[in-house]
């Protein structure tokens, strides 16, 4: 993306961004300001992410969605207004998004993601897919990994009280500052390597005890992977809340998935699958706010090359009020 690379923060920006520059520094702010981000799939969660990263002052954000606004979209997408019913989601959200921070270039793309070629994704610094199918996620992740621009890949979604973030930065270099006791600041350069989404899905755990397993992966993440599989086999649709048939399919998929992953089938309880089936299609504001807050924060962390981003899953459970990070590797 041919953005003019600017090398300083203006005094106006310094005043506007004062409270955050005091947190992450002017260099991080500058990196964000020169960055381009794609958010594909406009949902409640995407609205949150857009709001947060636009406020932070990134260079440009492209919002991609080919669908039109339905009545129920108003329940979680606060960037759209009543009059926009029936119009394109991305276009409607962009109008309000621009007002959040006129310094950020908000670009609308109304094309279907399936029609976008790999080169499209490779022009961004960060690509973030919200609520997309697992097939799209894997394809776009692979495209980002092949990008010369080292495009970072995120995928996320919320299901009722629960939500996840997946992150693949391939090979990410960042710095960590540490205050020594003598008040000197030590800067440590680090890097993390990330597995691709398709590799992550092949992870084998080797039947450990539930206690050991729980430290590696949460039942919720495995249940969400089962949900992706269901969608894959059903033309992208989620299970219907009240469908016994869908629930039975989900339970079956759970059994095969856990067997393949070398995990005791009891690890992912029936009730958890049931909750995902009954609420999986719903996105509610507070859950979007929490997951969207972490997602935006992590995107900003990655852009600023300061501090460690999520490696490589973040799982939020609203019922338990926990947010855990799991590093899942192919192994």
């Amino acid at each position: 993306m041919a953005l003019p690379q600017q090398h300083t923060i203006s005094e106006d920006e310094a005043a506007l961004y004062d409270r955050q520059i005091r947190l992450w520094g002017a260099e991080a702010q500058l990196r964000m300001r020169n960055a381009s981000i794609l958010i594909a799939g406009m949902r409640g969660l995407s609205n949150e992410v857009c709001k947060n990263i636009i406020l932070a002052g990134v260079g440009s954000i492209t919002i991609l969605d080919h669908e039109n606004i339905t009545e129920q979209d108003f329940g979680s997408q606060f960037l759209i207004r009543g009059a926009a019913l029936g119009t394109n989601r991305a276009a409607a959200a962009a109008e309000k998004a621009r007002l959040l921070n006129p310094r950020v270039n908000v670009i609308v793309d109304q094309e279907d993601i399936v029609k976008k070629d790999d080169a499209f994704f490779q022009q961004f610094n960060i690509v973030c897919l919200v609520g997309c199918t697992i097939d799209q996620m894997i394809r776009v992740d692979d495209a980002c990994r092949a990008s010369e621009k080292r495009t970072g890949f995120y995928a996320a979604n919320v299901y009722g009280f629960n939500g996840y973030i997946f992150c693949d930065l391939k090979d990410h270099h960042y710095r960590v500052e540490r205050q020594e006791e003598n008040a000197a600041t030590v800067i440590i350069q680090k890097h993390h390597t990330y597995d691709s989404l398709s590799d992550v899905l092949l992870a084998r755990f080797g039947f450990p005890t539930p206690r050991k397993l729980r430290r590696k992966v949460s039942p919720l993440l495995l249940a969400i992977q089962v949900l992706w599989q269901f969608q894959q086999q059903h033309g992208g649709r989620l299970p219907q809340s009240s469908s016994q048939e869908d629930l039975a399919t989900m339970l079956q998929l759970r059994d095969t998935k856990l067997k393949d992953a070398q995990v005791d089938p009891a690890f992912v309880d029936d009730s958890l699958i049931q909750v995902l089936v009954s609420t999986g299609s719903a996105e509610i504001m507070p859950v979007c706010a929490v997951v969207g807050g972490y997602l935006a924060q992590d995107i900003l962390k990655t852009l600023s090359a300061k501090d460690a981003p999520i490696l490589n899953h973040y799982i939020y459970s609203g019922m338990e009020a926990t947010g855990v990070v799991h590093h899942i590797k192919k192994e």
Binding site: R19, A56, A289, G292, Y294, A296
Partner: peptide
């Protein structure tokens, strides 16, 4: 220092 994301969460 204060940022949007922490407040949102």
């Amino acid at each position: 220092p204060a940022i949007a994301t922490t407040n949102a969460i």
